[in-house]
Nucleic acid binder design. Structure first.
Lengths: 337, 337
DNA sequence: TTGTATGCGTTATCAT
DNA sequence: ATGATAACGCATACAA
């Protein structure tokens, strides 16, 4: 058991050619005679030679690795997106490493620096930082695609859903079902959530319903693991407030994390969804399917999102040039249970 | 905007020393005069110099990166473990990359080769392959810790839960509650599941209850995303069989993936858990907390598991030598809802 | 068509 | 205490 891997030199020696020729065979960067090609390939096989990606990277300055830097990897939604991204990238010779920024701005910056210094071919980012004026230089010209959130002060490809429109549709449906006094609640307010809020407000306005700004609530809840979201005291206070004091008859939830807390609250208080209170939320999360409650949800097409992000990145990796654009994926309004 | 990063040579030039000295300052591998150290450090600051990990890796043969190769990254359970691993490793100067093997044996092998060729400092693996006789050479002497599953034909550190004991306790409790005819059901049968099955059988034997081998069922279900697990036809057949034909009064579920399908089934058939049928399962999954059903679950201490895996790996990374051992983390039997 | 030679940015050996 | 230099494994410009 030798501890060191065979190098190109070993292959060259065995095949009786120079390392340059071996390199040319591997990358077919030159016309190599069929016969020598055979010799080299058989030597490669015989030694079980693998190119050393570190050396190659040092020389060329780039790798075949893409980083998927995610604000919260535990969010199942991103797993679905990631699986699709990985599939597309794998089919094109790239590997995907998942990196969890844990909704931590400083950590995200550090991880992006790592992606850069590791010469990743490109990155797909669910950004935590909103303002990228200070950050954009970190990645230099590393191809970058944002997904799910659009940061400010940087122009890159972005894959989103039709946030405002979807939120409008959701709210509109709830109003059609009789909602008169609506609340919009979500954890942190980012650009995506702002768009959802816009759609929410538009729908209310167009139905000439009152908009109570006190019922638009964002906490700056640090992301917790789901198991801590149930019985969350902060959310309880918020929900007590809008339901008992503000007497809302409908709650629109900005994402499935809040939805989880809210459903936990409703269960504890024995409030029946859609009967005692109207409720709609973003995300068609898997765990909603086993609930007894009826749910109205905005289903995001995670496969389409992942597919789009990966294919745009691939185009960039190939060196194609085209305007940085915003790709919006359609959603579907769905009744569960 | 220069496109190339400053190198050690730039720092050396600015500080008026040689690259060797700069290297010595950075790694304090030599006694460097305090004064020159100052000069070098200020040059580093001035140029915003960062060492190139690729070059360092090529030279030294190892990096500060650990790979967490997971059989199914979408499984929330592994996210909790991973978060703890990451915390411990970060505190010791290592970065964690998550890699999803998607329960695909060939893919896992390829990814392990990648970890090796990328000179990862070490890896923590939830293994998909059971037989490592052919695989163990891939990682060479890269420190490796297995978690959650113990592969065969390789001796390494392994972090598990007390599988057999926990399963015994779970089954025992269900029998105490009146179970007479029990089924054990799970997706794929791996070494971990075998231990859980052992505990299940032990409990049944010791209570002198009949053990019907037809009611021990493993399918070779490929892992699906959760959203596909509800309304899963294969599971429906299995459950119809044990309930209607075998007339079992109790089902023990090997993990939360099957539990999800089973609960979906019970809901559809309007079967009330613990009333119409006794039900216990491994995993205290977050989504169980919002169900109306009462659940008896084996809670795995994910933080302890992650903590142990990371700290053992760190010891290996430091070069400590000690026997490859099996670390078993205690579980807790819990009533939900 | 193939080989020679150089450099990518480090670290490490050996002088000085 | 510091510097010159070789080597890590590969890709490439250029020569042959």
């Amino acid at each position: 058991m030798k501890s060191t891997e065979p190098s190109m030199k070993d292959v060259a020696n065995l095949a009786g050619v120079s390392t340059a020729t071996v390199s040319h065979v591997i990358n077919d960067s030159c016309n190599v005679k069929e016969e020598t090609k055979k010799k080299v390939n058989s030597a490669i096989e015989q030694l079980n030679y693998k190119v050393n990606p570190t050396a190659r990277r040092l020389r060329t300055g780039h790798s075949k690795i893409v980083g998927f830097v995610v604000s919260n990897l535990a969010h199942y939604f991103y797993q679905e997106i990631g699986a699709k991204i990985e599939e597309v990238l794998n089919n094109n010779g790239y590997e995907l490493f998942y990196i969890n920024s844990h909704e931590d701005k400083a950590k995200e910056i550090q991880q992006l620096q790592l992606c850069k210094s590791e010469d990743f071919a490109g990155v797909i980012v669910v950004p935590v930082n909103e303002d990228w004026s200070q950050i954009k230089d970190i990645l230099g010209n590393t191809p970058t695609v944002f997904i799910d959130r659009k940061p400010k002060h940087i122009r890159r490809d972005v894959v989103l859903i039709t946030n405002a429109q979807s939120s409008f549709n959701l709210t509109n449906e709830l109003i059609t079902r009789g909602a008169k006094r609506l609340a919009f609640i979500s954890p942190l307010l980012d650009t995506t959530m702002q768009l959802r809020l816009d759609g929410f407000k538009d729908a209310i306005m167009q139905h000439n319903l009152p908009l109570d700004e006190d019922c638009v609530i964002f906490t700056n809840h640090k992301p917790k693991i789901y198991t801590e979201l149930a019985d969350d005291l902060e959310w309880e206070k918020v929900l007590d407030f809008v339901i008992n004091e503000k007497k809302v008859d409908c709650i629109v939830s900005g994402n499935s994390l809040f939805a989880f807390s809210a459903i936990s609250y409703f269960k504890k208080k024995n409030i029946k969804l859609q009967k005692d209170i109207l409720f709609g939320t973003f995300d068609n999360a898997f765990w909603m399917h086993n609930l007894d409650d009826q749910l109205l949800v905005v289903e995001q097409n995670t496969r389409a999102m992942g597919e789009k992000a990966a294919s745009v990145l691939l185009s960039r990796l190939k060196g194609e040039t085209f305007i940085y654009d915003e790709y919006c994926i359609e959603t579907k309004l769905i009744n569960l249970n």
